[in-house]
Every structure is written in C-alpha cells, then in structure tokens.
Simulated assay, not measured.
Amino acid sequence: GLPVVSVDYRLAVDGVTHPVPHDDCWAAYQWVRAGGHGLPTDPARVAVGGGSAGACLAASVGLHGRDAGQAPAGVFLAYPLVHYPLPGPSVELAAVLSTLPPVLLGPEGENDALMAQLLGPELTGVEHFDYAMPGNAESLTGYPRTYIENCEADELRASGERFAEQLAQAGVDVEQHTVPGETHGHLSVPGLPTAKATCAHFAAFIGDVLR
C-alpha cells in the first residue's frame, strides 16, 4: 500500500564522480517529500533504502537529511559499503572469507579502483566526503533509525558492521542482522529464500517506522 520510487541516479562511470550520484538521490528524495509523484505525502514518513552502492547512497541521504532538518523516517541498508578505506575484517569474517573460491573474492586492489571511480583519482579531499562515505562522518548523532542486513560471506560485512557500531555509539536506534551462508548481492537472485526473508525484514522495518 505504499508508493516505491526507484532512483535512476547517474553512475560513477565516464568521468562522473561524487557528488553527482548523491545529488541525484538527494533531489529525488526532496521530490518525493514534496509529493512530486502526485500522491498525498507526509514528508515525515518517507523512508530510504538500498543495496550495496545503493545502500551507500541511501545512507548518505540519511546523513544529508539529518543535516538539513529533513531526516528520513528510517534508513534500511543491504550489504552497505559506507567507509573508505574499507575496515579490516574481524577474525571471524576473515576465516569465513578464507573458505571462499577466488571467483567470489574481488581481485587485490579492486576496492581502491572502484573508489577512484566514485571519488576521483585523489580518493580523498572531495567536497562533503561524508556524503560519499557516510561511515566517515565526524558525527552520526541524530541519524535516523536504521536497519542493516549484511551477508555472512561478504568482505563488505566489515563496513556494515562498523557502521552499526558507530550508529549505536552515537545513540541511534539501529538493528543489524547477518544473512547466514550468503555472499554479496543475494537480493539479485529472484526467488532465493534468503532474499525473500531479507525483503520481509525490510518490509517489517518500514511498517514499524511508518506506524
């Protein structure tokens, strides 16, 4: 019974870098809050979410919203990457990753290469770096209520777990779960039972924050 808006933000390719993808998502968020889709809208009941790179952008909208006094009702994230550099894995996560075949692990230096696409070749020093990597924000106090779902056998779980820790330390209402046995991107597999469960968890979170 809720409208869902999927944002066709410009990708970090062909010279497009931060803040362009963030600005696209922020503009779409403001458009939704203003009822641009033509449906009755309570701006205080708009939630944002996404997966992987989209999770980073959703998290950045949450941070920008806090700063602008237009915070989302909630933020829900699947296997987010919200830090640069990527936090090191825990002993437990490193042990899990060591069991994966090479095809499921990114090549050495891949994260830096991907970050260079988003941030530009200098990687740091960009304007509003925290809107590119919300986990690098100086403070997360006042951040919206958040739900995070990570995958057990995913290198990026280190970022999702660290972000949950930071939010909790900042006094934010945050909940996180780990999808057992799954690698990055399980939501992209139609009909996968674990993906259905994650969608159900997100739906429950959205229903709760909008009540």
Rank of each mutant, 00 (worst) to 15 (best):
A94S: 05
A94R: 06
A94W: 01
V96C: 00
V96S: 03
S98A: 15
T99P: 05
L100K: 04
P102S: 06
V103H: 04
L105G: 00
G106P: 09
G106W: 15
P107Y: 00
E108F: 03
E108I: 05
G109I: 07
E110C: 01
N111D: 11
N111E: 12
D112V: 06
A113R: 13
L114T: 04
L114C: 01
M115N: 09
M115L: 10
A116Y: 01
Q117N: 12
Q117P: 00
L118N: 00
L119G: 11
P121G: 01
P121W: 10
E122D: 15
E122G: 03
E122Y: 00
L123C: 01
T124M: 03
V126S: 09
V126L: 15
E127R: 14
F129N: 01
D130E: 15
D130P: 06
Y131R: 15
A132N: 07
A132L: 08
G135H: 11
G135Y: 09
N136Y: 00
E138W: 01
E138F: 01
S139D: 13
S139W: 11
G142H: 06
G142Q: 04
Y143H: 11
Y143F: 15
P144Q: 05
R145G: 05
R145P: 08
R145K: 14
Y147H: 14
I148W: 11
I148L: 14
N150H: 07
C151F: 10
C151H: 07
C151P: 05
E152Y: 10
